[in-house]
Design a protein around this nucleic acid. Structure first.
Length: 510
RNA sequence: GGAGCGUUGGUCAAGGGGUUAAGACACCUCCCUUUCACGGAGGAAUCACGGGUUCGAUUCCCGUACGCUCUACCA
């Protein structure tokens, strides 16, 4: 019988959720749902120094926003609770002790200062970062070099210590990565990683193995930066006797900076002017605000879509995918091996496509809030929808709607008179005078009728339509943008149109 | 320094022993529109390098270069 697929995303609550993290969530989610499996969210909060209040709640809100909610988590509960590593603290030591008893790990009493001294002492140009490994552990203060009596005395006295894995010498460690195929390591080149810290908390290495085992995780996906520590995890699965239960691994390619090389960081976003976090993140320690995709006007559908194809594609020309389609079409085999540079322009293109693709009611309320924030209260919902339909082609971000459509609800404050003034004359002035008169008596108020009247009047005055449309636009809109002028006039209504012509006339002067 | 991983246009990328090496974003030209966009047509631009294997390599093999990641009592 096939085991039920179970995957997990295991963030540490240290700050905003990076777009790469969201992609990892996405790929996990897609894989799980495709196989009818479970998606587990586990909080890796074993580093008490890095704990940031609010970060966990923030992660949940992000997942909710993008629609990738876990089946099990500290918030959603589940049969393998607790899902917060700090709450599972007790079990880790027990396993670490077991490893010591088996001879696969050992106590180490070296203080941070001693470790630093060791690194200092052995650092050379050839070896800039000396490791605590098979060749050095014999010279350090640990249960391998000290007598049993001394070790138990130190332990009894409560001397701070860690537990380190004892990496074997010269073993070839191999595993098959779903994306990369067979990967090999020589165990001699891996250091004796700390498993249990002096404060009793496990390190990632120990915790990830124990939790993946006890939560029955079948497939473990993470970023490529974890590849070098895979041999440690491999050995842990083996030493703990769980080799048969080890999940299948896949290491995802990294998302890189748009310029130069290297992992994309929050700093790059600040520097280059685009978001890196899913949502706004305010660091409680310094009140610093980092902008997120959500607040900048991205649709979750677009955000997900853009992330999905950053490192994966289905082999066809299709670029626009809904979450449902992704669940059906995603495959780890088609995930790229190489990292991809993030391209903000393309990200915006996806958003624009989704604005056009989705029915207005999917984002209408978000835009309404944006309007309200800027002092425009929408009273006529029907008109609002017509306006949104009319301008959506020219909005890339949800936040663009305000500049593209606020004039439908509020007369422009300043008119770009400079662009009409040079060609302005008395004839034109008279034209608008007459036009506003005639509009008063226009019975049917729609774009076609307004345009017909406009044309008729222009012909009477012997002025070309084109000469008059721009001034008309400036009067109604304030600037050189927006949809067809007659559509605008139709939507803002007779009174308002006439009022704006009058105001425009006086602003332009003669 | 070491180890691991990677390398198709500026970017995302399809493809894979014989192809005119798709497509998208960006860029350029033109059309549409007497606003700004959308849209449409076209253009420029790519298989890191060197050796093999082969009748034939972008594709397979081996090197080299370059890049990235890791090298913490962080994840």
């Amino acid at each position: 019988m096939e085991k039920k697929v179970r995957v997990r995303f295991a963030p540490s609550p240290t700050g905003g959720l990076h777009l790469g993290g969201v992609r990892t969530v996405l790929y996990n989610y897609l894989f799980a749902k495709q196989h009818g499996g479970d998606f587990v969210l586990r909080i890796e909060d074993t580093d008490q120094n890095r704990y940031v209040p609010g970060a966990e709640e923030y992660i949940f809100e992000c997942l909710k926003w993008v629609g990738l909610e876990p089946d099990e988590s500290p918030l959603h509960g589940g049969p393998y609770a607790p899902y917060r590593q700090s709450e599972r603290k007790e079990m880790y030591r027990q396993y670490a002790e077991q490893l010591v008893k088996q001879g696969n790990a050992y106590y180490a009493f070296d203080t941070p200062a001693e470790l630093e001294a060791m690194r200092e002492k052995f650092r050379t140009e050839e070896n800039p970062s000396p490791q605590y490994n098979h060749s050095l552990r014999g010279r350090m203060r640990n249960s391998l070099t000290m007598s049993e009596d001394e070790v138990s005395r130190l332990l009894k006295e409560g001397t701070p210590h860690v537990i380190r894995i004892k990496m074997p010498e010269n073993e070839t460690l191999t595993f098959t990565d779903i994306i990369r195929g067979e990967v090999h390591f020589n165990s001699s080149l891996v250091d004796d990683k700390v498993l249990l810290k002096a404060d009793g908390m496990p390190t990632y290495h120990l915790a990830v193995v124990i939790d993946d085992y006890s939560m029955k995780i079948t497939h473990a996906f993470r970023g490529e930066e974890w590849l070098p520590s895979a041999p440690v995890h491999l050995l842990l699965w083996k030493y703990l006797g769980w080799e048969q239960e080890m999940p299948q691994w896949a290491h995802f390619p990294l998302i890189l900076k748009p310029d130069g090389h290297g992992k994309l960081s929050k700093r790059d976003g600040d520097r280059l002017g685009f978001p890196v976090f899913a949502m706004n993140w305010k660091d409680p320690r310094n009140e610093e605000l980092t902008h997120g995709f959500r607040e900048l006007g991205f649709l979750p559908e677009a955000f997900i879509n853009m992330l999905a194809v950053l490192g994966w594609n289905d082999g066809t020309e299709q670029e626009l995918f809904s979450l449902e389609e992704l669940v059906n079409k995603f495959s780890l085999e088609n995930v790229h091996k190489g990292g991809a540079k993030f391209n903000y322009e393309k990200a915006k293109w996806f958003n624009h496509e989704w604005i056009k693709k989705l029915p207005v009611d999917r984002w209408q309320s978000t835009v309404r809030k944006e309007f309200e924030k800027n002092g425009i209260i929408i009273k006529d919902e029907e008109k609002f929808i017509r306006v949104l339909e009319l301008v959506k082609d020219r909005c890339t971000l949800l936040t663009d709607f305000f500049t593209q459509a606020s004039f439908f609800f509020k007369a422009p404050e300043a008119l770009d008179v400079a662009s009409v003034k040079p060609k302005w004359n008395e004839d034109k002035s008279m034209f608008f005078d007459i036009l506003s008169e005639k509009l008063t008596t226009l019975e049917e108020w729609n774009a076609t009728a307004i345009e017909a009247l406009f044309k008729e009047t222009a012909t009477e005055k012997g002025i070309k339509m084109g000469e008059l449309q721009l001034p008309f636009r400036i009067m109604l809109v304030g600037g050189k943008f927006g949809p067809t002028v007659f559509d605008i006039a139709a939507l803002i209504g007779k009174e308002e149109t006439i009022a704006r012509i009058r105001k425009g006339l006086s602003d332009i002067g003669l």
